[in-house]
Amino acid sequence: MGFPTLSTALGFGPPYHLPTQGTLLITDTLTSDASFLIHHIVTNALQTPPPAPHSPESPPSAGTMPTTAAMGVAKPRVIMVGLAHIFNHYLLISRKLGLNLLPQREQRQYIYIDGVSLTSPFAKHRRFHPADRSSQNPTAPDYYCPPFDPPTDCSHHATAYTSSQRYLTDLLHIIVGFMDIGGVGVGTGGSGDQSTPSPSLIFDDIAVLWNLGMHPSAILEFLQACKFHVESRNGSLTLLAHTDRCLSGQAQKADDEGPLATGGYEYFVKSLMYLASYILQAESLPSGHSRDVHGQLLHALRGNSGNMMERPNARSSCLASN
């Protein structure tokens, strides 16, 4: 299991899997990095033993959210779309947390889609193409995202949108293909196929698509479709986005030129919040840096009622450095 105290603080309840049919948005800054939450979620999903279905005599404890355990669903399949780090990064950190990802990959329990190595159009000119060595390298990803060629005329709405949509549609088909392949002795999703595990789709981090110059509407539609597919299979979707002040619209007004500096990133993050059911905001402490405490974590619930914050689940926790 990842970080036990964090699991309790998040309130997802034993065995600390993400709630099914939920979308989790994690926001962080340079001073309070929240990537540890990604490792925590992956480790929890893969390492926690499948729980026994709870009996009517022992209902789940009050105050906890419905989990995969409550739904009678076991381990999800983790599909990681790594847009910020290569597979080795996740492999090494997972080992520190007591989980070896290599056997998980062999069992199709963990799928890694590499969005780092080849996404940029510059990757086409690399001398040693990482995809060529995929058969020999045990840590090679399951799939490489194809290069994204931004349109020459980014100012034209339809051109930028169509170019982005073409790339993202291909990526969506790949992701859904991995969702539907059979698993080995794991829990089932909602589609009724007993050999298909429920997926836990993770994007680390989604801001890279924005930085590549993709059209925000196309990204949001892509994520909407991912959410739709994940929810249909009783899975969960996790997004990580950076929310440093320098990325906000106010900071970009001074040099507002080009497709990346349209001052719209803050609105993009807000749109992600509308997409999410749960929001985890990692923030630095307002009182300044501390040796033992790195920051604080705001846990917001959107839930089925559509309310962003419900009192029992709105909480703020400290991120300790252990």
Binding site: L172, H173, V176, G177, M179, D180, G190, S191, D193, A225, F228, H229, S232, R233
Partner: peptide, 8 residues
């Protein structure tokens, strides 16, 4: 839609 999501 790819997969079985639309039928679900």
């Amino acid at each position: 839609q790819p997969g079985e999501a639309s039928s679900a």
